[in-house]
């Protein structure tokens, strides 16, 4: 089975994240990049499926040169090779353009199964997997907490408000996974060393047949009109419990008419 797992480098959420004042995009230079947390579950799921069914795991990332660090992490976990879609023209791409460029790259790579994390910790739109399924014309098997493959049949448990749906489809398909679908492995020393020798192919937009006028900030379908650091919340009242903390909290609730 040919599995492509999409990973994204995101700013470490423990650091302060900012928008650039010039083009209102995320300032990626100012912060440390890490693998988007939910993507680690996607990599783990891809590796488990490969271990069970055979095949190959290819990592696909779109991002600036420094996103290579993220690729190395996924390779160190055990993926076989990587494709890095990287081009200055892609800077500032929104979800629509990103899904277009990623879909083009996926068509070039070829796949039986595409696996993603269900959302990124930076943009948090949660739409990419659905957009890829739409663009690729493949089944959308998103928000999976369990994935089972049997020949060309694939079944997932999709998280819903009321519990979960059992969903069935036929490969090729696009899957997104939620946290706790598995326990992502830590790269071993051997894995880290081996990752250095694994092939990483860099694709520019022309290599992936991506139309340059359809990506990047200029092609965005929405614009940030303005932004500002959120004003700090007005300082609240903090009391020390002296045996009446619950009563005081109830008084506060009553003053706000919650009770």
């Amino acid at each position: 089975m040919n599995i492509v797992v999409c990973v994204k480098q995101v700013p470490d959420t423990a650091t302060e994240r900012k928008l650039r004042s010039d083009d209102k995009t995320l300032d990626r230079d100012a912060v440390d990049g890490v693998v988007n947390e939910l993507d680690e579950y996607a990599v783990e799921e891809a590796l488990r499926l490969k271990e069970a069914h055979g095949g190959e795991v290819t990592v696909l990332t779109m991002g600036p040169a420094k996103a290579t660090e993220t690729i190395r992490k996924a390779l160190a976990m055990g993926a076989d090779k990587a494709v890095h879609l990287s081009d200055d023209a892609l800077h500032g791409s929104d979800a629509l353009s990103t899904s277009y460029a990623m879909a083009q790259a996926l068509k070039k790579i070829g796949f039986d199964l595409v696996i993603l994390g269900s959302e990124s910790t930076d943009a948090r739109t949660g739409v990419l997997a659905a957009m890829l399924a739409e663009r690729l014309g493949t089944p959308q098997l998103t928000l999976a907490r369990k994935v089972e493959v049997n020949g060309s049949a694939i079944a997932i448990e999709r998280i819903t408000d009321y519990g979960f749906d059992k969903v069935e489809a036929t490969l090729p398909a696009v899957v997104s996974v939620v946290e706790k679908i598995n326990e992502p492995r830590y790269p071993s020393f051997k894995g880290i060393m081996a990752a250095k020798k694994k092939p990483v192919e860099t694709l520019g937009i022309a290599d992936a047949s991506v139309d340059g006028s359809a990506v990047g900030l200029a092609a965005a379908y929405s614009e940030v009109a303005e932004f500002a650091a959120a004003p700090p919340r007005a300082a609240g009242t903090v009391v020390k419990d002296e045996g009446d903390g619950g009563v005081k909290a109830a008084d506060f609730l009553a003053s706000k008419k919650f009770i």
Partner: peptide, 19 residues
């Protein structure tokens, strides 16, 4: 907006009872 520094095992049941 409102905070109580205290043991939740004391404060939460008391708050529940008050409500």
């Amino acid at each position: 907006d409102f905070g109580v520094v205290g043991d939740l095992f004391q404060v939460v049941p008391q708050l529940t009872e008050e409500i």
